[in-house]
Write a protein that binds this DNA or RNA. Structure first.
Lengths: 154, 154
DNA sequence: CCGACGATTGAGAACGATTTGCAACATCTT
DNA sequence: AAGATGTTGCAAATCGTTCTCAATCGTCGG
C-alpha cells in the first residue's frame, strides 16, 4: 500500500480531485526533470488540449499546500516543481550545462539540524543548491580519496 | 588599507562612480538587514529624493557583476542584497518571525565542497538557507551538548 | 582645466511569471 | 439526483524587474 499516486493522496488529504488536477499529478509523476509551471502546462496540454495555465498554477499550489510536491528555485527566476520524495535530497546545478544532479547526504542533513539547534531553532525545512562546474578528471580522482558519504542520485 | 568603501572599490574595479551609485553603496553599507531593491530604493530616496527605482536596480546589478555584493532569495520572491563579506556565511530564516540569522560553519563549507567533488564538480557557489522555528529552552540546552562548530553571527 | 564621447539617469512603457475576478461548470456530500 | 461549495477558463490585473530613449553626467585625452 505504498504506491499511492499523487492524485489519490490529494483526494485522501481532502483535496478535490478533478480531471485537470489528475492530469497535473500525472505529468509530475512522469517528469524526471524539474519542470516549471510553463513546461508542466505544455505537457498537460497533451492530455487535455484546453487546460488553462492558471489551472496548472492553481493545481500546483494546491499540491504544494498539501505537502505532496515541493518547489525549487535554481537561480533562473522560474519556480520548479517536483514530487516530494520520502527521503530528502538536495541539488547540484551545473553552471555550464544547467544540468541538475540530485544527491542525498546524511552527514549534511545531520549537520544542518545541529546548526539550527545550536542557534536555538528546530529545523523545519531548508533549501540547498550547489553550483559547480565539471572538474577535470585529474581533480576528480584526487578528490575521490576523501570519503564524504555523498551518494549518487537514487 | 582594508576598509575601502564599496563605492571606492567600484571605482577601483573600473566601474563608473556616480552620485546615485555612491548613495546605493552607502545604503548597503549602512543596512544591517537584507533589504530588497524596493527597500534600498526607499532608503536611497532619503539621500536623493529623485533617484529612480530603475537606477537602483541598475546599480545593484553593476555591483553584483563586480562581485562587490551578493544576492539572496529567502523564499518570498524578492531578491535581497547584501555586501559580500570576506568570510562566507549562510542564513537561518525564522519561519515565525521572519528574522534572518547569519551563521558560518567551516564543517559545512568543507562538506559542501566534498560533496560537489564526489559528484565530479568543483564548487563554484552555493545557496543555503535553513528555515526553522524557535526551539523550547529545554531542547536548546539538550542540543547544546552536541558540538557542531556552528558559530553565532559575526 | 575643457571638450568629446561613451556610460548612466529618470520616467514610463514593456516584460515574464504568477495571480485574480467572474461566470460557467464539475465534485463531493446527503 | 440536487445543492452547496470548490474549480475551471479566460482575460485582465499584479508584482518584481528590465528596457527604451532623450537628457545628463563622468572620465579621459589634450
Amino acid at each position: 500500500m505504498q504506491k499511492r499516486s499523487i492524485a489519490e493522496r490529494l483526494g485522501a488529504a481532502g483535496g478535490m480531485v478533478t480531471d485537470q488536477r489528475r492530469i497535473v499529478c500525472a505529468v509530475l509523476e512522469k517528469s524526471k526533470d524539474h519542470p516549471d509551471a510553463e513546461l508542466i502546462f505544455k505537457r498537460a496540454r497533451k492530455a487535455d488540449s484546453k487546460i488553462a495555465l492558471a489551472t496548472v498554477y492553481r493545481s500546483l499550489k494546491a499540491l504544494v499546500d498539501l505537502n505532496l510536491i515541493v518547489t525549487h528555485d535554481f537561480g533562473d527566476n522560474r519556480t520548479r516543481y517536483e514530487i516530494k520524495d520520502d527521503d530528502h535530497h538536495d541539488h547540484l546545478v551545473c553552471v555550464s550545462s544547467g544540468k541538475v544532479i540530485e544527491f542525498h547526504n546524511p552527514k549534511l542533513e545531520k549537520l544542518k539540524r545541529e546548526i539550527a539547534a545550536r542557534l536555538g531553532y528546530s529545523l523545519e525545512s531548508h533549501r540547498l543548491e550547489l553550483y559547480g562546474r565539471p572538474a577535470d578528471v585529474d581533480e576528480q580522482t584526487a578528490q575521490r580519496k576523501s570519503e564524504t558519504g555523498a551518494s549518487k542520485p537514487s
